[in-house]
Design a protein around this nucleic acid. Structure first.
Length: 572
RNA sequence: GGGCCUGUAGCUCAAUUGGUUAGAGCAGAGCGCUCAUAACGCUUUGGUUGGGGGUUCAAGUCCCUCCGGGCCUACCA
């Protein structure tokens, strides 16, 4: 039994996430976690909300709430939605936790002791009206290059030119619109990741099995221009982890907080402590996952994230870990995803475009979304959600291929033999052949799951379902029954066993329907089928079962059109 | 501007990393079945692998070039 640590990129607290966010990290991470647990491995699956930073402060202000209260509420909203999608986190933590505050301060202190922190005095734009420093992109003005009047301080969206806030003509605060801006000097801490460039480069280069998407982004940052740059890890904000050197004050840094991207990855570790604290366990419970000197040397650590998160996970966070000089666990494998587009454009949180997690669950149960999203995961390139494709896939794969199989078998059995596993007859060459095919397919399915090849795994799972229909057609128990009821009994017994088998192996993708299949077959405790022949004899003759409600309903053309128009505009 | 990814059947994607005649699912066509959610099974149509050039005994795969799509470019997170 292996020990697998799995983290999903932590979603920002600011609002409800859309399906693109979901499929980019949390959902595939859940797939992997469920699979690994089913295979009998010990899994620690961690996620959390990323709560600090300017956007959270502004969103709270907009809602007229204290930021802490706003975050607490939004955490609950996101937690409920992740439960709704059956995301099986062992802990869904909060980056604003006490545990993360202490750990973040601890890491900063260690980095300082080891010479990886530099204090830099720099100039920042301060807005008197807003009473705060403004991040570059929160300053708007006229682009000196093209004259676009809504250029942001970091880049002009119109001509794509990179800008410095001081380049802007007639700069104003994007928050209040105030033009009462001034440049002030402020001191910040920089993480000297440039000192670790060669070490990081060597480490990344050794990861030849990582997705190209992951390594190519990392290498770009390592080699572009002058190479990996030092990075500011503090901000002039109220909402965040106060800057401390371990447990000591940091002279000159009073009133400042760590930048969210410094404390957010540390939350992976802190959330594990949140878990063990919540369970009433002592510190060894979480440290055995994270400290290679306290049990984590045989842990396999896998991270899931969208491509936008790759630089922080391949460079900044590892720099934090390595720079601490402590034996913290470094990531072993990074699975990164491209973006999911929505019907010809991008999903957009800020513009409210696309389908959001809460809306999705209002329309259909989680399994429908899980299946479509995972079987279309943007692994090799950006992929696209369209309602036509969604309708076609769900209806065909779930309702017709899998759902209808369960329906035809259980209903036939009920009408001919009653609601118990029929007695009589024996498995013959046909069943042996099917077992051989299933074994072959299962090997491929497992291999793809181990390799986190999500789409390929989904295709193999579907192929497993198809085998059931092929078998049934070939065996034709409805005909055989007339001449040889015992033989028909054996066929149906085998088919009922197939349902239980599907329940077991489909669970990582569609946990609710899988549970329903297992429950109907009275096989709730069924484990992962390692031995196919034994697995398909699990339901013994005479055992009671129930005919489940149809596992999946079909999406009608009217519904599809309705949803299409309902989600064509922007979320209000 | 620079870098990276990508373009394969009407649609969504494969192709063991240069090796037989480029394969699946969906959609389409035909046949079969009647247990089932009009579901299922079998057969089948469909490709100058974005265009052009090159390397090679051999190119979807490598190189050059052009065209299209996307991402990143370090203060959104």
């Amino acid at each position: 039994m292996a020990r697998i640590l799995i983290t999903s990129a932590i979603p920002y607290i600011n609002g409800i996430k859309h399906l693109g966010n979901l499929v980019g990290s949390q959902l595939p991470a859940d797939l992997y976690a469920r699979y690994m647990r089913a295979r009998g491995h010990e899994v620690m699956f961690i996620c959390a909300t990323d709560e600090h930073g300017t956007p959270a402060e502004l969103a709270a202000a907009k809602a007229s709430k204290p930021v802490a209260e706003y975050c607490a509420e939004m955490w609950q909203v996101q937690k409920d939605l992740s439960d709704g999608f059956r995301l099986s986190f062992d802990k869904f933590g909060r980056s604003s936790s006490e545990q993360n505050r202490r750990l973040t301060q601890y890491f900063a202190g260690r980095l300082a002791e080891n010479g990886f922190i530099e204090e830099v005095t720099e100039s920042q734009v301060y807005s008197n009206a807003d009473g705060r420093f403004l991040p570059d992109r929160y300053i708007e003005g006229t682009c000196p290059n093209c004259g676009y009047d809504k250029a942001r301080g970091d880049q002009c969206e119109n001509c794509t030119k990179q800008l410095d806030p001081t380049d802007l003509i007639n700069p104003r605060s994007a928050i209040s619109g105030s033009t009462d801006l001034e440049v002030r000097e402020t001191k910040h801490l920089y993480l000297r990741q440039s000192l670790l460039r060669e070490r990081l480069d060597k480490w990344i280069s050794s990861k030849t099995d990582w997705p190209v998407l992951t390594t190519s982004i990392a290498k770009k940052w390592l080699h572009d221009g002058d190479g990996l740059q030092d990075r500011g890890i503090t901000r002039d904000l109220d909402w965040g982890v106060p800057v401390m050197k371990g447990e000591e004050p940091w002279p000159g840094m009073e009133g400042k907080v760590f930048y969210v991207w410094f404390d957010a990855p540390i939350e992976y570790i802190a959330a594990t402590k949140e878990w063990s604290d919540g369970e009433g366990l002592d510190d060894s419970a979480w440290r055995r996952w994270w400290r290679t000197d306290e049990g984590a040397e045989n842990v396999r650590y896998v991270q899931f994230m969208g491509k936008d998160n790759v630089p922080f996970h391949t460079l900044s966070f590892p720099a934090t870990i390595i720079g601490s000089g402590d034996p913290w666990k470094l990531v072993d494998y990074i699975k990164s995803f491209n973006y999911l587009n929505y019907d010809g454009g991008q999903f957009s949180t800020s513009q409210g475009r696309g389908v959001f997690m809460d809306q999705a669950l209002e329309i259909l149960p989680a399994d429908y979304w899980r299946w479509w999203l995972l079987s279309h995961a943007p692994e090799n390139s950006d992929s696209e959600f369209t309602w036509e494709n969604f309708q076609a896939s769900v209806n065909k794969d779930l309702a017709d291929v899998l759902g209808n199989f369960v329906s035809r078998v259980t209903k036939f059995c009920r009408s001919r033999f009653g609601e118990e596993v029929p007695k009589g007859g024996a498995y013959g060459p046909g069943e042996v052949e099917v077992i051989r095919e299933l074994t072959e397919r299962m090997d491929a399915y497992s291999a793809h799951m181990e390799a986190i090849e999500v789409r390929k795994a989904s295709a193999e799972l579907r192929a497993l379902w198809v085998i059931g229909n092929e078998y049934l057609q070939e065996a034709a128990p409805w005909s055989v029954f007339k001449e040889d009821p015992d033989r028909a009994a054996a066929i149906i017994r085998f088919s009922l066993n197939l349902i239980a088998f599907y329940g077991a192996v489909s669970a990582p993708f569609i946990p609710d329907a899988s549970a329903a299949m297992l429950e109907a077959m009275g096989a709730d405790g069924m484990g992962w089928p390692d031995d196919m022949e034994a697995a398909l004899k699990g339901l013994t003759p005479g055992r009671a079962f129930t005919v489940p409600e149809n596992l999946f309903r079909k999406i009608s053309d009217e519904e599809r059109e309705d949803w299409q128009s309902r989600f064509s505009g922007v979320r209000t």
